[in-house]
């Protein structure tokens, strides 16, 4: 049982790390602000969620898990809100989205 939990937690950590790095590459390589925002915010939510889930599986039912859940819930709400606010501010700031003709 412990081995299974460990394995699941490692898979979560590794795939979370993969998504986080993918988001970082997207943030660096994509052509304009809105595509970068897309790359960063989507992978941030998924990658962060997976890594925190992996850590939660490691600590089981404990105070640390409660804190991790709080962080997770908070990031789950704040990260998309921040992304939305950024996109709205950028549109108000007369930034034109990149469209391939």
């Amino acid at each position: 049982m412990q081995l299974l939990l460990d394995a699941i937690s490692w898979i979560c950590l590794l795939s979370g790390g993969f998504f986080v790095v993918a988001g970082g590459i997207g943030l660096l390589r994509f052509p304009d602000f809105f595509t970068r925002l897309h790359a960063a915010s989507v992978t941030d939510t998924l990658g962060t969620g997976l890594i925190l889930l992996g850590l939660m599986l490691q600590s089981g039912f404990s105070q640390a898990s409660v804190k991790l859940i709080l962080i997770l819930v908070f990031l789950f709400f704040s990260s998309p809100t921040a992304a939305h606010a950024l996109a709205k501010a950028a549109l108000h700031g007369k930034l034109v989205p990149f469209v391939k003709r």
């Binding site: 790390g17 986080v20 890594i51």
Partner: peptide, 9 residues
């Protein structure tokens, strides 16, 4: 491994 991934990002 997770720390390395986050540092690269």
């Amino acid at each position: 491994a997770g720390i390395a991934a986050v540092l690269v990002t």
